[in-house]
């Protein structure tokens, strides 16, 4: 079996007594984009949160299984969730730049927040903004408050903020669902550039987006009050053009969900 960069083994999730994810097994190879698709409430967002232990912040959350990063379980006994989140970055559905900080401060906020000091913080700002393809737009107003940016720019700032931490894996939870088509296209271009240097997992409700940017796709489903699970997982082309499971076929062709 090939070595995968990030791997979820038999992931089960509960909220209180409610079982919301059942036996999820997914592998995320290095330098590939994996899309998670499925109807609302099927547990995709919950699952992506288990990958950097953000899930455990929800009151009443429960977890069983393993998530291996480079072969090591991030839920292991001696593992600090803070270290996990430094290595595995996350971009949320709604842009959430820190309102009290300037653009520049936002980019390097991760360093300050995690207590890492780097002498080249100035270069890092430029580097990260370039990687998030927004350097040219903001290079003249780095000291402006971050909330003066447009929604699409704010989201790319959040990506830049994650990139400044130089993560191995970037998790994106519907990063474009609040954005216009132009901003969406730019973020998609950014994702395709970023995958050269990291592993990306993205939750999306947009079938075209999944096809455009992902190498592999996993289809989640939660039927009739049963816990969510993975129906089908494979190459994106195969999921969209030759799905094995009829439910996948119906979903990707827009007949339910």
């Amino acid at each position: 079996m090939a070595n995968f960069h990030l791997e979820a083994k038999d992931v089960n999730v509960w909220f209180g007594a409610r079982h919301v994810l059942k036996n999820v097994n997914l592998q995320f190879p290095e330098n590939q984009v994996t899309a998670l698709i499925g109807p609302s409430g099927c547990g995709k967002s919950t699952f992506i949160r288990t990958l950097n232990r953000m899930h455990e912040l929800i009151p009443g959350a429960g977890f069983a299984g393993e998530v291996l990063l480079d072969g090591k379980d991030i839920y292991g006994e001696a593992v600090d969730p803070v270290d996990v989140r430094i290595k595995i970055g996350m971009v949320f559905q709604k842009p959430n730049p820190f309102p009290t900080m300037s653009i520049k401060e936002n980019v390097i906020s991760g360093l300050k927040l995690s207590g890492i000091s780097r002498p080249d913080a100035g270069d890092l700002v430029e580097q990260s903004l370039v990687r998030a393809s927004m350097w040219n737009e903001v290079k003249d107003r780095l000291n402006d408050p971050a909330i003066s940016l447009s929604g699409g720019q704010q989201q790319r700032l959040c990506i830049a903020r994650s990139l400044a931490m130089d993560p191995d894996v970037l998790l994106m939870d519907e990063p474009c669902s609040a954005l216009d088509p132009g901003s969406t296209r730019r973020i998609e271009e950014t994702i395709l550039e970023l995958k050269e240097s990291m592993t990306i997992v993205i939750v999306t409700h947009n079938m075209q987006q999944a096809q455009r940017i992902s190498d592999r796709t996993a289809f989640f489903l939660a039927e009739d009050n049963t816990p969510g699970h993975v129906v089908e997982f494979g190459e994106t082309q195969q999921i969209f053009y030759g799905p094995i499971d009829p439910r996948t076929n119906e979903y990707v062709n827009g007949r339910f969900g």
């Binding site: 996350m90 949320f92 959430n96 820190f98 009290t100 906020s109 995690s114």
Partner: peptide, 27 residues
């Protein structure tokens, strides 16, 4: 203060006390 801000800070690898002092409290 929106929960999103705190989550954003925690997702960057902040211990919760730093997330509080650097993000939630200033907001």
């Amino acid at each position: 203060v929106p929960k999103d801000l705190r989550n954003g800070a925690l997702a960057l690898g902040a211990p919760s006390y730093r997330a509080f002092f650097m993000v939630t409290l200033p907001a």
